[in-house]
Design a protein around this nucleic acid. Structure first.
Length: 459
RNA sequence: UCCGCAGUAGCUCAGCUGGUUAGAGCAUCUGACUGUUAAUCAGAGGGUCCGGGGUUCAAGUCCCUGCUGCGGAGCCA
């Protein structure tokens, strides 16, 4: 990720040591580096130490006859992930990775690490997840975390630069906003049960009625017992909400937004994407306009291409049937639809019964709601879910009652339809699913520093 | 919750229709080497074969059961 060089205080004020990323500015000078041993190998009178400091990796070479016995003893004592300060001359060197290396003059040992568990060889995911706190030190994880940081910056730049106001929504909420999903529960003083939020959307709607264009960006919690490569129990979601936006405006914004994020990463994360071995031609193709299909067109496509639905009959047998209009798409249907496309696709106007109570019905066809999901290509799946919201007081109240939601807890939400109600729309984008897609990571757990999953809360 | 797969050295794995003392690569330790990039070469140490029960002359291997993890479905971002 390209560093923002407008803020130079880290290089101009703190002179006691140098960061590896700045070494090319110091060729011929003596510098002190502070870091950790990434790898060490000895060849006779030479010791090669690959040092990492978080900003990069550089090879430090110690030639034993050039230094005292104490210093070469220090170098020899180094183990993987030992913490050290290295003093030496910076020189350009063709044979060194990166073209720059340090001719070591002095080594100060902070701590010798014993038996670092993650060796430079292969490891299984289970083992690595148990050592997540150490796994983050590896090159590949550095690259993923920097792409994640770039995606977050792109998200904030996009909205901040387009007249949106950040309006954080609460994490503790009195009810399930969609009334369906399983939520994490806790006791809230004497006021009864509270839940960890599964979406900031209802609060974003209230904020949009105040400030016009807003977004909320924070952690979200789902207590579903999901065990897949695309689910976390704690994940980050950004949710823009716009007054006077209809569904088409919403879809246009979602396309602009996703295009901006992907193009920003291509521009600023070349090195990281190269480390990850990402095929960037696939990302370069992510340009507007994206594909769009109505739910009904998608069902017709599935049936025209004989992509059947696996259904279980009451006696337990599995049968394959034509996809029936009205059924929600699962991962297999979405994946099949996306095989046609090399850039994202929006599916819109889903059956009313499979979507949330707050979505507005299509006046032209009340059997569908003005909802939209954006699916990313390359099997990445759903990254956005959004809709135009129901803005009519009576229609919304009817939906609240129909879903057996506690009306008194939704009074404030219904109020928004009483005092200057307007058409409005928004969507939620899953941060980790987006980062997984852009980095090409196998599993969503790799793209958040400390993943929370059904059977793992440590570290 | 349902379906499938797995658990053998610190790590990644092999171990056939049950058959002597349990195998490899890497890592670790010792030694050699002035250019290593996952160095190479020589040597050494390292095992509750996930737990419990059963079948058998004999179980890492077969059966039952439990635990743990992984993947998929559902739920969704």
């Amino acid at each position: 990720m390209n560093r923002d060089n407008k803020l130079k205080f880290m290089t101009s004020h703190y002179k006691s040591f140098t960061y590896i990323e700045n070494l090319h500015q110091h060729i011929g000078e003596a510098v002190t580096l502070n870091g950790w041993v990434f790898d060490k190998t000895e060849k006779g009178k030479l010791i090669f130490i690959k040092l990492r400091d978080g900003s990069g990796i550089v090879q430090c070479v110690l030639f034993k006859p050039n230094v005292s016995e104490d210093i070469s003893a220090n170098a020899q004592a180094l183990t993987q992930e030992s913490s050290v300060s290295v003093k030496g001359l910076v020189r350009a060197e063709q044979r060194a990775p990166g073209g720059v290396e340090i001719d070591v003059q002095d080594i100060k040992l902070w701590q010798v690490a014993r038996d670092y568990p993650i060796t430079p060889k292969e490891h299984g995911v289970e083992f690595l997840m148990e050592h997540r706190h150490l796994w983050l030190r590896s090159t590949r994880q550095h690259a993923i975390m920097r792409v994640r940081a770039a995606v977050i910056k792109a998200i904030r730049d996009f909205f901040d630069g387009n007249g949106f106001t950040l309006m954080d929504s609460p994490i503790l909420t009195p009810n399930a906003s969609e009334g369906t999903s399983t939520l994490f529960e806790t006791q809230y003083f004497d006021l009864g049960k509270a839940y960890l939020t599964q979406s900031g959307q209802l609060y974003a709607e209230a904020s949009a009625m105040a400030l016009g264009r807003v977004y909320t960006f924070g952690p979200t919690f789902r207590a579903e017992k999901s065990k897949t490569r695309r689910h976390l129990t704690e994940f980050w979601m950004v949710e823009p909400e716009m007054a006077y936006f209809d569904l088409n405006d919403d879809m246009d914004l979602a396309e602009d937004f996703v295009e901006y994020i992907v193009q920003y990463c291509l521009k600023t994360c070349k090195r990281e994407l190269a480390i990850l071995g990402r095929d960037i031609t696939k990302l370069e193709a992510v340009k507007r306009p994206f594909h769009r299909l109505s739910y009904t067109e998608a069902v017709e496509w599935l049936n025209a291409n004989e992509i059947k639905l696996n259904k279980r009959t009451p006696d337990g047998a599995e049968v394959q049937v034509d996809f029936p209009w009205g059924e929600d798409f699962g991962a297999p249907q979405e994946e099949a639809i996306m095989t046609q496309f090399n850039k994202p696709c929006i599916i819109h106007r889903y059956p009313t019964d499979v979507k949330a109570f707050y979505m507005k019905r299509d006046v032209e066809n009340p059997k569908v709601v003005l909802a939209m999901d954006m699916l990313a290509p390359e099997g990445a799946g759903e990254i956005i879910g959004g809709s135009q919201r129901e803005d009519d007081f009576n229609a919304l109240r009817e939906r609240v009652l129909h879903e057996n939601l506690p009306e008194h807890e939704f009074q404030w939400y219904l109020d928004l339809r009483k005092y200057g109600s307007v058409p409005h729309s928004g969507f939620g984008l899953g941060l980790e699913r987006t980062v997984k897609w852009i980095t090409g990571a196998e599993h969503i757990r790799e793209v958040i520093p400390f993943p929370r999953m059904i059977y793992r809360i440590v570290p």
